[in-house]
Design a protein around this nucleic acid. Structure first.
Lengths: 215, 215
DNA sequence: GTCTATACTGCGATAGAC
DNA sequence: GTCTATCGCAGTATAGAC
């Protein structure tokens, strides 16, 4: 692997582990056993490293969140869809842990982020309207929008909410799965009979995942 | 007013306005027209200033969130209750904008925060059980807990979620009110007939507030 | 209590040899 | 491409005069 890529991956690892604000370029270099100078040969500055990570993330997000017809048709394929999305959150968790901070320091990144969010919002609305047309939820347009906002908020804030509530605890996959469960608990009261079955199925699956991950 | 208190209030103002990480002790001193040395005569360090602000906040929170019997009995007094709480969020909004960051740098504050949260959680549960016993919502114990989590999450994350979505926009009271509306939209689907009336009343009130604040 | 001046620190970043 | 050495800066914090 190229040094440049190694730097990106080392940085991602350290950011996820220690929080982006606490990881300096020197830390990254030391961790890799290369010199600071070498790091700066490959990247103009720390921002550029973060940008590179974000670009990977945004591309992944875009691909995985692409609404796929089959994902909405069965509980099982919906599950694949959710899994993919939340593994993405896990992989780039440092980002979710300090979003306002990171964005406020970097207008260019802020802009990229907004574009990605816009995209995401469209995709979510498509999926949710699809649910509605299948009769799994019964909501008017306003309620659908509120729900989308709540779900996005839970998803993007879950990690930082949890670290604020239980700081000593590391962010584990179990924490992520609990976030999915929280989202499902928001959706459940809004479902029809058929929809409820799907949600309950998903809930029991993610409960198992939490169990497995804790033990 | 004592210099010490002036420092606290100047810091609160600057933190709210510019974000705590971007405000240094020098900024505070310059803003007040005193010397950095003088500031450090009154406070050992920046942390201690933040602690003082947090102590004021925690005390306010405790008092205002104290469940009052009458607050739950009519939509009107419930509204007083909500207003008081959200004005508190407004007054100390810098805190909500950077919670994970601020806490991760300061274990003592983290601990104080957890105590305050524990308290808050108890109070919320009391209020919600009261709602249930009045027949305004129909939920089992698990659902009640999920709802509490979602509401706390929306409340604590709303400001940072909004700043991430619309960074250039200042945090105004309208933003806070929209947060209340978001919470109400979460509650609405869970209410009984009578409960729904109360929620709708509250929603129309906060809609008016948003309107008024925008214009 | 308040000031001025300054020391200390850690991080971001660069220069120049190899 | 990689290293060593080092600069500059911003922010925290202190010393000592008034």
């Amino acid at each position: 692997m190229k040094t440049r890529d190694k730097i990106i991956h080392a940085a991602l690892e350290l950011f996820n582990d220690g929080g982006e604000p606490n990881v300096t370029t020197n830390h990254i270099a030391a961790y890799m056993g290369i010199s600071p100078g070498n790091l700066y040969y490959h990247f103009r500055n720390k921002e550029e490293i973060i940008h590179s990570i974000f670009d990977e993330y945004a591309q992944d997000l875009r691909v995985r969140f692409q609404p796929r017809e089959e994902a909405v048709l069965s509980a099982d394929s919906l599950l694949q869809y959710l899994d993919a999305v939340f593994m993405l959150m896990w992989r780039y968790r440092f980002f979710y842990a300090n979003l306002p901070d990171i964005l406020s320091r970097d207008p260019v990144l802020q802009h990229k982020y907004l574009e990605a969010q816009e995209n995401l919002h469209q995709d979510i609305m498509v999926v949710m309207r699809h649910f509605r047309s299948l009769g799994l939820v019964t909501l008017n347009d306003d309620d659908l929008l509120s729900l989308a906002t709540t779900l996005k908020l839970v998803a993007t804030s879950w990690i930082s909410y949890q670290t604020a509530q239980a700081p000593e605890a590391k962010i584990t996959k179990a924490v992520i799965y609990q976030g999915v469960l929280q989202m499902l608990s928001v959706i459940r009261p809004l479902t029809s009979m058929e929809g409820r079955d799907v949600v309950l199925q998903l809930e029991s699956h993610y409960c198992d995942q939490v169990e497995r991950d804790v033990s």
